[in-house]
Design a protein around this nucleic acid. Sequence first.
DNA 1: ACGAGAACCTGTTTGC
DNA 2: TGCAAACAGGTTCTCG
Length: 294
Amino acid sequence: MPELPEVETVCRGLAPALVQRRIVRVNQRRPDLRIPFPVGFTQRLSGRKVLSLTRRAKYILVHIEGDLTLIIHLGMSGRITIHPPFETAISPGRFHHNVGKARAPREWGPHDHVIFELDDGTLIVYSDHRRFGLMTLAQTGELNSHALLANVGVEPLGSQLTPEFLSAKLKDKKSPIKASLLDQRIIAGLGNIYVCEALFYAGISPRRQSGTVPGARAKRLVDAIGQVLRAAIQAGGSSLRDYAHADGELGYFQHQFAVYDREGETCKAPRCDNTIQRIVQSGRSTFFCSKCQR
DNA sequence: ACGAGAACCTGTTTGC
DNA sequence: TGCAAACAGGTTCTCG
């Protein structure tokens, strides 16, 4: 899934299609994703106008008139695609453009779980084959206290992520720094890829105890996190297997990772000939250079 | 209270 | 070639 840069990219891609449009119909094709859809999900959205889109951590927040916000999480494999009205389905999951003709009745693929129809005929399709994603509704005015958002930490690209803040959070922790950076209650939005990448650029071993990071290392880490995330957003998010841009293109940008998924390959640091290692930390792959990261 | 591991689910890749 | 195991961007629950 999408980590913060991918979610940000989806948000930005979705906004022009959604904002100021009215949702005319919602086709909810199963009772749940990771969690059940809320009662009245389709009815509460139908006929309402979308005011704006924002992102908090890895959540997409679709703000809708009438104090309503649609909260979307893409999980590991969630995608959102935009299908303009002139597009016609040729088979489940495949499309071609057919300008000027009415939309043909279409079949949906087994993983197309929610289809939003907008007042200009555009379809917004949420697909998620692993179903680790979720959608729910909240009152816009009470978003910050919503169970899903109440405990998320600071935005890594916001002004709140400072070396002092991070130092204070890590000070008494014994767990490896890798685990702390994945903890959404501290920094919201980092995932497995960008944690590996940020630790590499900061020159910090993923195995290092969190409590030994405060100080100069925390400064390097904050800088590295910002640098890595900004670069990824600039590049339009990293396209991996299950991720597509909001416009539905598989527009394949091959992100150049320094360490992620590069086990056995040579370290990219200027004068390093070391081999990237893969280890498993709390059940997830970590990639790092044991010479550059201490 | 904390941290590691399992569970949730399906598809793809890897290894024997 | 074929089948089974391992693995995948995340979150949340349980157990020690």
